[in-house]
Design a binder for these strands. Structure first.
Lengths: 154, 154
DNA sequence: CTATATGCAAATCGTTTGCACCTTA
DNA sequence: TAAGGTGCAAACGATTTGCATATAG
């Protein structure tokens, strides 16, 4: 247990899984442990690769299964950022805006004043009901903007 | 020409293509004509099917090529709505919010007061630069909410 | 013990690509 | 006629699925 300090999110997730009647398999525990500490908004593939490093027998199918399970429980947020793959936010499962760097793909959470007001404006502007916001901004992160690995403009 | 009345968008697009040095092939003209009148935010597949109805020899590859071309010219907006395929908005190419029905997939444009203010708030809240908003809301359209084809709640 | 998970490999499906043949300008 | 497009079919890559084996409770 030396290298597996637990975060409160970690404990919370395990409790949720158990409460929902899911079996606590080693694969799930390892995944939850990893995800509760990872704020990079990783894709399934990235999660798979990282998990494999400490757990060489896990399969990609199990990663997908567990992610689906977390999404179902409302404990994971899916991000469709037009990259060709879905990325996941397990640390902050409530819907919130993100920024993604169009050069390197880095994703960051965004806390915006006026978000509530904005969503409220949407609710009163459409006949559609039960609205859930999906908000992100494409941009260029400071590292890429400073030309570290690629020029800022084409 | 009886059934091919032109919209101003149609004419505008043809002019843009020509000005950009693209050849005006029959396939491109048919596609542009169709897209400039279609406000359903169709996917490439749907566009392909509709185009085939009047033009049985077009290929899906040409549909993708032409869409890419329009996106490059800034004349088409891509929408990634977590449906497993990209949808396109060629009628209003400027970035704007959308609503999508999570039951039937219908998409509608959304005009929101305070959008500028909101985007401005985002620009001042992150170190990322050159932000482009990607905003949509999942919801339930009036038709689906009224239970026409499925119950509103699980 | 047995319902549930896992791992593997094959299947799916949207999108992209390679290439020989056409066509616009 | 020559640069650029087209259609077809094969290739790709993310995700899903079927199924025999393993295991949590």
């Amino acid at each position: 247990m030396a290298n597996s300090a637990q975060t409160s999110r970690d404990v919370e997730l395990v409790a949720r899984l158990q409460a929902a009647g899911y079996r606590l398999t080693p694969q799930r525990l390892a995944l939850v442990h990893l995800l509760s500490r990872d704020d990079s908004h990783p894709s399934a593939d990235q999660i798979f690769a990282r998990l494999r490093a400490e757990y060489p027998t896990v399969s990609l199918a199990t990663v997908y299964n567990t992610l689906d399970m977390l999404v179902e429980l409302g404990e994971a947020l899916t991000l469709d950022l037009s990259e060709g793959c879905t990325r996941y936010d397990v640390r902050r499962p409530g819907a919130h805006p993100h920024v993604i760097c169009r050069v390197c793909g880095r994703v960051a959470d965004l806390d915006l004043d006026g978000l509530e007001r904005f969503v409220e404006a949407a609710r009163t502007s459409t006949a559609f009901g039960d609205l859930q916001p999906r908000i992100h901004f494409d941009g260029v992160c400071p590292t890429c903007a400073s030309g570290s690995s690629r020029k800022p403009e084409g």
